[in-house]
Design a protein around this nucleic acid. Structure first.
Length: 742
RNA sequence: GUCCGGGUGGUGGAAUGGCAGACACAGCCGCCUUAAAAGCGGCGGCCGAAAGGCGUACGGGUUCGAAUCCCGUCCCGGGCACCA
């Protein structure tokens, strides 16, 4: 049949205000009961990694929230009581940079950006429950960072030690990693050096094994890749600790090895050049050579340090280690290929069966002794260490044992003699959380000359940031807060004498390691989070965010959750039941950046195509996990589809002509509905949209050349289409629903 | 080096043991239009006139049947990287 040309046309931006007001007035996206309610319906807690307010929303935000909102809306349509939460990660470096550059208070810049982003979220039609809204830079929030810090401090999980930090010699200030560009200071271009300063740490290493063990619950629910990255990052190695006596020293030195079976092949001993032990073991005769080497090692550039094929250097320290198996004396070297922070900072070197040790031995004329017969060529001649399986040789009573049996037998013998034991080591390091910056949570510790480190009493929290009288770029390299003298100088809570506040602030990853616990009741004042809200919603059912957080935020959130479990504050050990990593939005094969000049502006896209078409484009582009190349997708195509749906609903109109259902058409409609549902259940959101497009085409044909627009089966299909569409394009769906007479 | 992914039309992708290329983008053709846009309809892996044959990086294998499972090779992306 022919249709008259539409007198009006689909205008995606004309329908935004109308529906925003309706949704607000009816509170349609508010969950049923934040901290209490009947338990008849299933509940789902949907959280997207919260935004950082560095300006207006960008394309990346649009992708994450298009995906998470489609999931939230779908689950809600399935009958769940859904809490779709939002807040802001509002402490952090860009606010400080903006403040320096424009002579602003970081607060003004931050809260202005939050206001802009909040309005943009509303105009994008994201179905947040705005009652969850929190900002981590609010004193009411960061107060609880401080409270949590003190609980970790009480338990010995927060401690101070010296660590290397980035230091700009020109600006005489500490730099965050993000401020170091290609080894140079972001502001002045000076080459950045490492400088030791005393820093605060959280003892994440105490939880290394639990991180691994609890992954059993995440298997199949988190992306396989993220679990693999975390396992890699934790880096569990099992082997043995072995004690070597040292000539002229009372105490033995302990090493860690994964190859106790090669103990008889140890022909030298190495300690990390930058460890205190190297300095202590050095004899007077070797002192000059050692200090010269120490200098060379300390000034190696980052690029040299990263090269894996650099020559093995080191210096003899003038002492010998005594092999606990056989009593052989072997020379002790200091070298930079042994890391001070890993294991014990000392190793037994077995050149025949370890490539690094062999490289060193060949460079320094140390003998090579094969102790595993692997059938491979002699490493002393080939320069290639052998690490295959085989039987022990040159190993006294252990000769003839295969590798695995020898590991056990030698470890058992060492243990029986009290000079070793089976041991596990992790590559994971403790979390360095102090920052020498202004715009973060002050560390609630007071330094008293008489009492030492004194926690600020809970009832004095929050320790609020000073709002005036500070200098953001102090001259002495300490935190900017050290120049706020009125704020820094306090009475010691313990002895009442003069004392100073800690002037460092916390890494913003502290803020983000527990924010999802506070969402159900962001105004709670009796603790960091409301136990009733946590009991009702946590753990998070659907967590959506970037893969780049695998070793950062996601590890920290897991850590804090486990600590809270140990404190009896939460009844679960894993915060996120299910995790989805969305991809990035890129442009013509490259990450969008100001320098490349390939930024796509979200508001311009919305102005051109409407919020719904931008959302549909994001979700339809491909699997949610994949990157979206904006050069390859078509917001025009998305908008055309939405216009087709819009016209279809207008053509069908309000009053169906009475007639019998068309069974064949009905079957086709319901097959597509079923397929769309399966796709949504398995989170193949792009496939879900394609089924809705097929349904649109089917109904268009039915209207034009089939049973006609007034047929009840067409109407049934159109109503289903519009309802499912609301997951992706809420404004157009509402408009279509209304055009269908609702 | 090591660990984890991946390789399907011009493009994004669909199909996870059962009709390869759904759905869309870009392209071409037709209808409509004075015209254009919009809209509606159609074509579209490769070879071939057709019949037919070939085809999911490459080589082998399992199976009645393989894009899908197994082995090997090549290539691409990502994590970690002197971690003992």
């Amino acid at each position: 049949m022919t249709r008259e040309a539409p007198a009006e046309s689909y205008d995606p931006n004309a329908i935004i205000d109308k529906w925003m007001k309706v949704w607000d007035d009816l509170h349609v996206y508010e969950a049923d009961g934040l901290t209490e309610g009947d338990d008849a319906t299933a509940r789902s807690y949907v959280v997207s990694m919260y935004p950082y307010p560095s300006g207006d929303l960008h394309m990346g935000h649009a992708e994450v929230y298009s995906i998470s909102d489609a999931i939230a809306r779908y689950v809600r349509m399935q009958g769940h009581n859904v809490l779709n939460a939002i807040g802001w990660d509002s402490f952090g470096l860009p606010a400080e940079n903006a403040a320096l550059k424009r002579d602003l208070d970081p607060r003004d810049w931050t809260y202005a950006n939050i206001a802009v982003q909040a309005e943009s979220f509303r105009r994008l039609g994201v179905s947040f429950d705005w009652r969850t809204r929190l900002h981590t830079s609010d004193p009411e929030y960061y107060r609880w960072n401080q409270w949590l810090f003190l609980r970790l401090f009480d338990r010995g999980l927060a401690y101070r030690k010296e660590a290397a930090v980035n230091w700009c010699p020109n600006d005489r200030t500490v730099l965050a990693n993000e401020q170091v560009i290609a080894g140079r200071c972001e502001r002045c271009g000076t080459i950045v050096v490492q400088r030791p300063l005393t820093q605060w740490f959280f003892k994440t290493t105490a939880y290394a094994q639990r991180f691994l063990d609890d992954m059993a619950q995440l298997e199949g629910k988190w992306p396989h890749e993220v679990l693999a990255i975390q396992r890699n990052w934790i880096g569990r190695s099992s082997g043995a600790h072995i004690d070597f006596a040292i000539t002229g020293r009372a105490e033995p030195v302990r090493v860690f090895t994964t190859r106790p079976d090669t103990l008889f092949g140890a022909t030298f001993f190495v300690v990390a050049v930058d460890s205190p032990l190297a300095d202590e073991l050095c004899t007077d005769e070797q002192r000059a050579a050692f200090e010269a080497y120490q200098q060379t090692a300390a000034t190696a550039t980052e690029i040299e340090r990263l090269a894996t094929d650099r020559p093995k250097t080191g210096v003899f320290l003038g002492r010998y280690a005594i092999n606990p198996a056989g009593g052989e004396q072997i020379p002790v070297y200091a070298a930079d290929y042994v890391l001070a922070e890993y294991g014990t900072g000392a190793i037994m070197a077995v050149p025949a069966h370890d490539q690094r040790d062999l490289d060193f031995a060949r460079a320094h004329g140390v003998p090579v002794r094969v102790v595993i017969a692997t059938g491979e060529p002699d490493p002393a001649e080939t320069g290639v260490a052998t690490n295959g399986d085989g039987r022990l040789v040159n190993s006294g009573e252990f000769d003839g044992l295969p590798v695995e049996a020898a590991k056990e037998a030698i470890t058992a013998k060492l243990a029986a003699e009290g000079v070793g034991e089976a041991a596990v080591t992790y590559r994971l390091r403790d979390w360095l959380l102090s920052r020498q910056r202004y715009w973060g949570t002050p560390i609630p510790i007071i330094h008293c000359p008489a009492c030492g480190l004194v926690p600020v009493p809970d009832e004095q929290l929050p320790v609020e940031l000073p709002t005036t009288g500070y200098e953001l770029r102090p001259a002495d390299g300490e935190s900017p807060l050290s120049s706020a003298t009125d704020w820094v100088n306090v009475e010691c809570p313990s002895c009442g004498g003069p004392a100073r506040r800690d002037t460092d602030t916390m890494d913003t990853f502290v803020d983000s390691s527990w924010y999802f616990l506070r969402y159900p009741n962001p105004n709670y004042t009796d603790g960091p989070f409301d136990p009733a809200g946590v009991a009702r919603w946590l753990p998070v059912d659907e967590y959506i965010g970037g893969r780049e957080h695998a070793t950062g935020h996601l590890m920290y959130a897991r850590f804090i959750t486990k600590v809270l479990y140990d404190l009896g504050m939460v009844p679960f050990v894993e915060p996120f039941t299910k995790l989805m990593n969305q991809g990035q939005v890129i442009m013509a094969g490259k990450a969008m950046s100001k320098t490349l000049g390939n930024l796509v502006n979200l508001q311009e896209q919305i102005a051109a195509y409407g919020p719904d078409a931008v959302r549909v484009t994001m979700v339809f582009a491909g699997p949610p996990e994949d990157d979206i190349d904006w050069a390859d997708v078509s917001p025009t195509g998305a908008m055309k589809w939405l216009a087709r749906v819009w016209r279809l609903t207008g053509d069908i109109g309000v009053l169906p002509a009475p007639s019998e259902p068309d069974l064949a058409l009905r079957r086709s409609i319901h097959k597509l509905i079923a397929e769309a549902t399966t796709a949504m259940d398995t989170r193949r959101l792009n496939v879900g949209i394609s089924r809705l497009m097929e349904l649109t085409n089917l109904l268009r044909r039915a209207v034009d050349t089939g049973v006609g627009p007034g047929h009840p089966t067409v109407r049934e299909g159109a109503e289903a289409l519009v309802r499912m569409l609301s997951c992706f394009a809420p404004f157009t769906a509402e408009e279509g629903w209304e055009r269908l007479g609702h």
